[in-house]
Every structure is written in structure tokens, then in C-alpha cells.
Simulated scan of single mutants.
Amino acid sequence: MAEYRAGKAGINAEAQARIHSKYNNDIAVEALEWVKLVTGENIPTAGDADSLYEVLKDGTLLCKLVNKFQDGIVKKINQSTMAFKCMENINAFLEAAVKLGVPAQETFQTIDLWEKQNLYSVVICLQSLGRKASNYGLPAFGPKEAEKNVRDFSEEQLKAGQNVISLQYGTNKGQQSGISFGNRRQM
């Protein structure tokens, strides 16, 4: 686990500090309360990184969570505390989350949770899964998902837009601040 590893140094330490600075306790509390509500498990909902890690590290709760979305999406939940069995649980959760509609860029790597390297991405993944919850009849969590806003333009409107000269091409209206460009400086 993470406590057996040597500490990072130099630029790696700076990068890790930047990752840890993104972590937000309030959002983590909301995520844990949502997980508690959906799964019905009695878990502590303190939002600090250590508490989040202790609750989620073996992956069993994460597997139970996605099984509430779709029964049997994770077929076997390992109850063992062996490292590879726990990482299998986390990986099974991640695969199920992608099947449930979580974009791949909003998931995390197994090592991010198992070795406490990036708990911020774990919370982001839970938020993304929480946005999909309403599609499965469960209470939603996280920022509301954007809806499609399709716009249909007629041919006349599209042709009218071709006649507009963009300000990127320049204009002679307004302030003439560059009028003396190229002249010698008057002393």
C-alpha cells in the first residue's frame, strides 16, 4: 500500500501537491452521503481524504453501488482484503461505471484509489455516476448534466451569416489606437 512507498521528491512532489490541492472535503462529504443513501450501508461520511480512502479502498462498497444501478452488473464482489482482490473490485466498478454511461475521461485509475494518489478523480467519478443516477430511478448527485440544445437554421439564415464581416478581419469603426503604427517617434 501507499505507506510502504518512498515519498516523492522534486518535480514529482510538486505535481502530487498540485493534485492533492484540488481535493475538496465538502464535495467528498456529499459524495459519501449519496453513496450511503443509495447503498443503504452505514458508513462514516467525514469528507477528509483519509476517511474517504478507508471507506472505499477495498472496492466492495463501490461494487454494491453500481449493482444498485443495474442488478448484477458486477457479478462477483471479492470479500478478501488481499491487495489484488481489492484492486479487482475497484476495476470491476470502473468497468461497470463506463457501461452505465460515465465518460472514460471522468473515471480514475485503480491505483489512484488503492494508493491514495488522486482521490480528487475518485470524487469526480462518483459525481459523474451520480448524474447518471436519475436515468436508473435513483437519487441524483452532482452538477446537473447538460441537455442537448439542437438548433436548426434555414438556408436563408445560413447564407445571411456569410455576408457578415467578422471583427477579426479588422474594422475602421471605433477607436483608432493603431493609427500611428510605422511612423517615427516624435521627440
Rank of each mutant, 00 (worst) to 15 (best):
N25M: 10
E106K: 14
T171P: 10
T45M: 05
K159V: 12
Y23C: 03
C63G: 08
E88K: 15
L126N: 12
K64G: 07
Q127M: 14
F69I: 00
T81L: 15
Q162R: 10
E33Y: 04
N149K: 14
T39F: 04
Q176E: 06
Q157P: 00
K75R: 15
R18I: 02
T45Q: 08
N118C: 12
I27A: 08
Q168E: 14
G101A: 06
Y23D: 05
L119W: 04
N78D: 15
C63F: 04
E155R: 09
G178M: 09
I165P: 01
F108W: 06
E3R: 06
F69D: 07
P103C: 11
K116G: 00
Q186N: 07
G161W: 00
V150T: 13
V150R: 06
D48V: 00
V66P: 09
Y136K: 06
G10K: 00
T171Q: 14
R184S: 08
F181N: 11
F181W: 05
G130F: 00
R18K: 10
V150N: 11
A49Y: 02
A17M: 10
I19D: 01
Y53V: 00
F69S: 02
N78K: 09
G7V: 00
I165F: 11
L129F: 14
S134T: 12
A49W: 03
F141N: 12
T171C: 12
N67I: 01
V98F: 02
I77T: 10
A92M: 01
G47E: 13
S80G: 02
N183M: 11
G7Y: 00
A31E: 01
Q117W: 09
Y4F: 11
A140N: 13
D58F: 02
G174L: 10
M187T: 11
A28K: 00
L126K: 13
R5S: 07
G142T: 14
C86A: 14
I19K: 09
Y169F: 15
L62K: 03
I73W: 04
L129A: 12
Q168W: 03
G142Q: 13
N25D: 12
S80V: 07
L113S: 02
Q127I: 05
W114D: 04
F181R: 08
Q157H: 06
E147Y: 00
G72N: 14
L113G: 02
L94E: 11
Y4K: 06
Q162C: 10
A6W: 00
P139T: 01
M87K: 15
L126S: 11
Q168Y: 08
N118L: 06
